[in-house]
């Protein structure tokens, strides 16, 4: 009995020892900083010889009164609400297209995937010149159709939408790969069974394809949602959050507060809010993926 217990303990110890390197890495670069960030958000920012002091929820109160925070938060929500479904719809559409028996589909798949392999900063620079007023590609096209020039990035009405287009362009190709994999997992027999019943294309999509790729859709949606709250590169590269914060997103604002304003405590409070948003998305992912869509 005694010996048995010892063996069991040994197995536990060994298990933990094996996991230790990963645990240490995760803890020191992810968990501890996250916890420290949350703690920091209850203190003031140290300035020179003035040390930081505990101020409770003052940072959060300041946040509630900060119009730029709300602008960034609302922008981010809009960003997610628009880019996630559009990117998914495009990705699925492209996947359905290149999954069919068409000529040159390998080239097409590659073409759709290309945006994904570009670094965000490179992609942003390409789009910067698409959007340039006067000689930008986009304006040349719309001028050819007789429309007036649009200052895409320089107009508060279009700046955020222009950034969204870049995100969608970049993500759709990536998500297409997931959908393509999912579509190829669907046995062709199922489509033939549906053909036997003379089900139309839309019915087949709605009754068979869509439910069968649902786990992929959910996975992609969650990832897209998390990405939407992690976007910062193209904001820096393309608009700097302007004009007048029209394209400011949460992470960009955090960057600005932390590394332009050097207000590390306020940045910690903002990060805590972002952490909460991302955390709840991740929880939803676990819940939905594990419980709701598990029929295989």
């Amino acid at each position: 009995m005694q010996a048995k217990r010892t063996t069991k303990l040994n197995i536990h110890v060994q298990g933990w020892l094996l996991a230790l390197p990963a645990v240490i890495l995760l803890a020191s670069f992810t968990h501890i900083p996250a916890v420290v960030t949350v703690i920091d958000s209850f203190y003031s920012t140290p300035r020179g010889r003035v040390p930081s002091v505990f101020i409770g929820l003052d940072q959060y109160q300041a946040m509630l009164a900060d119009p730029i925070f709300w602008r960034a938060f609302n922008n981010n929500l809009l960003y997610a609400v628009v880019t996630v479904p559009v990117a998914i719809a495009l990705a699925l559409g492209m996947a359905l297209w290149v999954n069919g028996r068409i000529k040159g589909r390998t080239a097409l798949r590659l073409a759709f995937f290309t945006p994904t392999i570009l670094p965000m900063v490179a992609a942003a620079n390409i789009w910067l010149f698409f959007y340039t007023s006067d000689y930008g590609l986009l304006n040349q096209i719309i001028r050819a159709f007789g429309f007036a020039n649009v200052n895409w990035l320089g107009d508060p009405a279009t700046a955020l939408w222009s950034l969204m287009a870049v995100t969608i362009w970049k993500e759709a190709g990536f998500f297409m790969i997931f959908f393509l994999a999912a579509l190829q997992q669907v046995p062709p027999d199922l489509y033939e069974a549906a053909r036997m019943e003379n089900a139309g294309r839309f019915t087949v999509f709605r009754r068979i394809t869509w439910p069968l790729v649902m786990p992929t859709t959910l996975f992609v949606a969650i990832n897209a949602l998390i990405n939407a709250f992690r976007i910062v590169d193209q904001v820096i590269a393309m608009t700097g959050g302007g004009p007048n914060n029209a394209s400011t997103l949460l992470l960009f604002y955090i960057y600005q507060v932390a590394f332009s304003f050097w207000d590390s405590a306020y940045a910690a409070a903002l990060s805590t809010v972002l952490l909460l948003v991302l955390g709840s998305v991740a929880l939803a992912q676990f819940y939905l993926l594990d419980r709701k869509i598990h029929y295989r």
Partner: peptide, 29 residues
């Protein structure tokens, strides 16, 4: 095709829809 020419088919793999119940599979057509 299929029902419109008055034929039904049982596939070697059964080709049942994995996301539908038995009842919904049977009444799919």
């Amino acid at each position: 095709t299929g029902s419109s020419r008055g034929v039904a088919m049982v596939f070697q793999s059964y080709a049942l829809f994995p996301h539908l119940t038995v009842a919904d599979n049977i009444t799919f057509g």
